[in-house]
């Protein structure tokens, strides 16, 4: 067999063939299913993380629950959800949101803890009211730590979406199943390259955002 690893003509034909499994459509679905859980996760993690930072007794139970969720195989979660949300993107998005929470809640709590006590005290002493202190002092200072968590959440979300292919909603993950079933490597290689590229781009975007948002953060060599 002198089958090449990558057949460029396959890529050219399948990049945008109008069908539901064209690479372009799969890529778009992949982005949506990876992106939504991280954004929704962040929106949930901020208030929940703040509550945990404020009421310490909440923290351990919350982290405990999140770790259990994190340890569940995604496939198991998909099967449970199938009976409720069916073979839709939602069935993939919900478990991934839970996974991202497991990373983001501790990140928000750690971020709040990264605010030095003397800074918090001096904010109080200057006459900041609690809400303003939170939004103008504590949250901005927590940003670098939260963004570090966001990088982990985004990259793992992008890689985990593929598993959804097992229920027909895996974005680029479809290419792995397709390639494996046909013993044809080109889709697999295309899938890997795109997933990795997506992860790198997401990571880079967050790094740039961090540089822009927190010029004050001490750069560590």
């Amino acid at each position: 067999m002198d089958e090449p690893l990558v057949r460029w003509d396959w890529i050219a034909r399948n990049w945008d063939n109008g069908g539901p499994t064209s690479v372009k459509v799969l890529l778009e679905n992949h982005i949506v299913m990876a992106f939504v859980p991280v954004v929704v996760g962040l929106l949930i993690a901020i208030p929940l993380g703040l509550a945990c930072a404020r009421y310490r007794w909440l923290y351990q139970p919350t982290v405990g629950i999140m770790n259990v969720v994190y340890s569940l195989p995604s496939l198991a979660l998909f099967s449970i959800l199938l009976s409720v949300t069916g073979l839709t993107q939602t069935t993939v998005i919900i478990p991934l949101t839970l996974f991202s929470l497991a990373v983001l809640i501790p990140a928000v709590v750690d971020g709040m803890q990264s605010v030095p006590d003397h800074v918090r005290q001096s904010a109080v002493a200057m006459g900041f009211q609690p809400m303003r202190r939170l939004t103008r002092v504590e949250l901005p200072i927590a940003v670098p730590v939260v963004l570090a968590g966001l990088r982990v959440a985004a990259v793992s979300s992008i890689s985990l979406v593929s598993v959804g292919a097992l229920i027909g909603q895996g974005g680029l993950g479809y290419l792995f199943i397709d390639g494996w079933q046909r013993q044809f490597y080109t889709p697999i290689v295309v899938g890997i390259v795109l997933v990795v590229a997506l992860a790198l781009i997401a990571d880079l975007v967050i790094i740039v955002a961090q540089r822009l948002l927190t010029p004050w953060a001490r750069r560590r060599a």
Binding site: P116, H118, V119, Q121, S122, A123, V124, A125, M126, G127, F128, Q129, V137, P140, I141, T214, W216, A217
Partner: peptide, 22 residues
């Protein structure tokens, strides 16, 4: 009111307590 009171009283501490992001 505590916030009003504090805005009329300067406060300096050991580590300066400056806001790192400003």
């Amino acid at each position: 009111d505590p916030a009003t009171l504090r805005r009329g009283i300067g406060y300096v501490i050991q580590q300066a307590g400056l806001f790192p992001h400003r």
